[in-house]
């Protein structure tokens, strides 16, 4: 697998990089860790005229605490993000999701900004970006602009980045106290992309019975862009918790998408055990499950060898339920 020929420049500063991009026109590509771009080149799915390698620019690295948000350098590697005390303390969902990206070798070379700029809806970070309302700081020869995550992802592998523009940092808002987080990734092998992934952040109140006050849900690989599951977020607000919700496949309640779990004969009964509320019925776990049933609303998941759209919609519902439950438990400190 040999790429078509291209020019290569390695600017010494961000300023030089912007100048190089400015002069190179529409066919230039920014090379950072190369973990997404190089496979495209090698398969001759991309024919850039010039690669502007920003991977060694110190200006684009590092993770800073800016008070209300963290600023993650676009060329910080995944591994740096995963190991960052700041990220783990202030924005743990970012660390949780980044730790699931590919494998250790890729995480040591691949970069946070590069992965987001690649805008693969099957990548793990875009869903987190929309769930957390991250902001992208973008530089070009005409100056700097800031684009919200919801406006950044335009289509499959397509972003709001114009020719000549480069991401310099990503701002991750701090959510404050009372939140719990989880990234639920469903994939067939350890190195495979997510068939579906769910990024969940849940704020739980213990005032007047434990309940969910606010939730953020982002979906991986459920459309041509990352999806914010706003209907789930609205429906789950106020849901009461009994501490057992959404356990990974062991305490989950309800039937599986119409599966006759309680049919006569030898079929295993309802996952809640005797006496619990069936799917959709009243009761606290029903509320969480019911909200999760909305996860696939408005999505248009892809078909590939790992699953069709119907299966992905089903997975989105199950995984959202699990992710919300795990995030809620984590908010409660358990």
């Amino acid at each position: 697998m040999i790429p078509a020929s291209f020019d290569y420049v390695r600017p010494a500063s961000l300023e030089e990089a912007v100048a190089a991009l400015d002069g190179a026109g529409e066919e230039a590509k920014v090379l950072s860790g190369g973990q997404s771009l190089l496979p495209l080149l090698r398969m001759r799915l991309s024919y850039p005229s010039v690669l502007v390698d920003v991977g060694r620019l110190e200006e684009l690295r590092g993770i800073r605490d800016e008070g209300g948000h963290l600023a993650i350098g676009a060329a910080a590697t995944h591994d740096e993000v995963v190991r960052s005390p700041l990220v783990n303390a202030e924005c743990p969902l970012v660390a949780l999701a980044t730790a699931t990206v590919a494998d250790p070798a890729v995480r040591h070379r691949g970069t946070f900004g590069g992965s987001l700029a690649h805008a693969d809806p099957a990548g793990d970070l875009p869903a987190v970006a929309v769930a957390l309302d991250m902001e992208f700081v973008i530089r070009s020869s005409s100056g700097e602009r800031i684009v919200a995550a919801r406006d950044f992802f335009v289509d499959y592998l397509e972003t709001a980045l114009a020719p000549g523009e480069i991401i310099t940092e990503i701002r991750v808002p701090k959510l404050g106290d009372g939140w719990g987080f989880h990234y639920e990734k469903f994939h067939r092998t350890a190195q495979a992309w997510a068939t579906v992934g769910v990024a969940a952040a849940v704020r739980v109140s213990t005032q007047g019975g434990r309940h969910i006050e606010e939730a953020r849900v982002g979906l991986t690989n459920m459309g041509s862009t990352p999806v914010r599951a706003t209907e789930v977020e609205a429906a789950v607000r106020g849901a009461e918790l009994n501490g057992q919700a959404g356990t990974n496949g062991s305490g989950g309640g309800g039937s599986v998408n119409g599966h006759p779990r309680s049919q006569e004969g030898a079929a295993p009964g309802n996952g809640n055990g005797a006496g619990s509320a069936p799917h959709g019925g009243p009761g606290p776990r029903g509320a969480l499950r019911q909200a999760s049933e909305l996860a696939a609303e408005g999505t248009s998941p892809p078909t590939d060898l790992h699953g069709g759209p119907g299966y992905r919609r089903h997975l989105a519902r199950v995984l959202t339920y699990r992710a919300l439950g795990t995030a809620a438990r984590s908010a409660l400190g358990g």
């Binding site: 998408n257 030898a266 699953g307 089903h314």
Partner: peptide, 23 residues
């Protein structure tokens, strides 16, 4: 999966195929 009436899952037994067999 026998309690679900399943007698076969085609190879490779991908999650989707297993889920559909249950279903």
């Amino acid at each position: 999966l026998r309690p679900f009436g399943v007698k076969d899952v085609p190879m490779p037994c991908t999650p989707e195929r297993v889920w559909r067999a249950v279903h």
